[in-house]
Structure formats: C-alpha cells, structure tokens
Amino acid sequence: MAVIKIAIYQKNLHKRISPEEISKIQQSKAHFLILPEGFPHFFQSESPENAAKHEKEYQDHLLEISETFPGVILGGSHYRKNEEGHLVSALPIVQSLVLVDFYEKKSPSASKEPGVVPGKTESIFIMGGLRFGLLVGEDLENEAIWKEFKKEDIEIIFYLSYADEKRSYEEDLTYFESLAKEKSIHLIRVCGPSEGKPARSLYASPSGINWKVGKVEEDKDVFKTLSVNVMRSYLL
C-alpha cells in the first residue's frame, strides 16, 4: 500500500492563482495538484472557438505554478485545436515546467460547447508513479470509459467538473458515495465556483465520503491536501 498526497484547489475559474497561493501549493509537498474543469478562464469569450485563441495564456499560468511545485499538475481544462485541427476541451498535464500531455474530453455538451468534438486521447495515464483515470465534465456518464477503467483495474480517478445543479448538496454526496462503492474506486472530484454556480469538491472511496467542502463553502476557494491509500495503482 502507498500513500499519495493529492492537493485539490476548488478555485474560482476567473481568478488567477496569486504568488501567495502558489507558495501555499508548494508547501503542501503534494504529489499531485488537481484544478477544476474550466480553470483558468480569464477571458470573456463568446464561444469555445474564440476561447481557443487564448490557449498559450492558460498554459503559461499552469507553467508558472510548476516553477515551484514539482508535482504533477492536472490543470483544469481549456479549449484548443488538437494535432488533427479539431476543437476539443483539453486537460493539460504539466510537470517540472513541461507540458507533458493532454486528456481530451470525450463527451462535450453540444448545447454548452458548440463546435467542440469528442476527444480521442487515452483516459488512463501514468504519472508520478501512479496509474490513474481522468474524467472531465459529462465524461462521468460515459459508460465506455467506465468499462475501460474496470478492465484495466483502475483504482483512483480524478474528476474535474462543474457542479450538477440538478442535484442538491445532499443528493450530490449520496450520488458520489454510491458511485465510489459500486465501482470500488477512489474518486476525487474538483469543482470551481463561477457566476453563482456551486462548487462541491469531494473525495469518495469504497468506505464512503472521506472529505467534502461544507455547504457554506460552495461559492468559496478551498485548498485541501488529501492523503489517499492505494493498493494496486502505485508503481514505484
């Protein structure tokens, strides 16, 4: 069994991480830093196509964090044109000032993300000695990804999302508690507050909800370092 330190930042999507906050991230000495879907979103863009023009600025901010944080950054998500020229919602993976890879969202919303096509990258990655799965937004409902996780015996999944406003705070907890038990996984969910939408970051495992933001913290920035015990996924 190995203990992985995972820092999650429930961070306002439209506000930069300040030098003081970067120092706090560094001091966590975590192996991973997880940022919410849609972070960093500093520009008022009327469409994903327009937002993709700011790809470099988004990535530069993540690299700024990586200057002093040696762990793996699973850096929110932004729109970009991939190598095939397709517009995708991409989760950049950064470590040691290197943009290592991208996870591309497999299930973009046609109504919320016009012009964005499903990504074709792998859903399972190995970084920092850990083998883990990634989900962004609506990917949570994608059965093909879950079948792959089960086939590959994936134990820990990082889920970058917006809160689902169809569910109440209590319903969200029940949903993720049941999901973690059913799939026998550690699921770490990170959300970011934005324009009045709630953020409900949490850590669910087969034993239940291990950590959650309080109901009064749905609209706040919250930084938390979790210790996660993994049996099968640690490779070193």
Rank of each mutant, 00 (worst) to 15 (best):
I209M: 12
V216A: 08
K81N: 10
I154L: 05
R189I: 11
L130A: 03
S109P: 07
L33C: 04
R80V: 12
V190A: 05
F42T: 02
E218L: 11
E21W: 04
E46Y: 09
K181Y: 06
H31N: 14
E141T: 14
P36G: 04
S107K: 15
E217V: 07
L140M: 12
S168Y: 04
Y169N: 06
N50Y: 12
N210K: 14
E37F: 05
T121Q: 05
E195Q: 13
S184H: 11
E171D: 13
D139T: 11
Y103A: 02
G137A: 12
E141A: 15
V117H: 05
S184A: 11
F176E: 01
V88K: 11
H86L: 13
Y234D: 00
S161P: 01
R131W: 03
N142S: 11
V88E: 03
L99T: 05
L236Y: 09
V216H: 13
L13S: 06
H186D: 07
E57H: 07
L173I: 14
Q59R: 09
A204K: 01
S96Y: 09
G85F: 04
K224G: 01
A52V: 10
D153S: 12
L236N: 10
P70W: 04
S233D: 15
M127Y: 15
K106V: 14
H78I: 03
E170I: 01
K181W: 05
K147N: 15
Y234L: 09
F102D: 12
S109I: 07
L160C: 10
G75Y: 05
E155N: 07
N210M: 13
R80Q: 08
I145G: 02
E67F: 04
V94R: 01
L173A: 09
A180R: 02
I65R: 04
G133V: 10
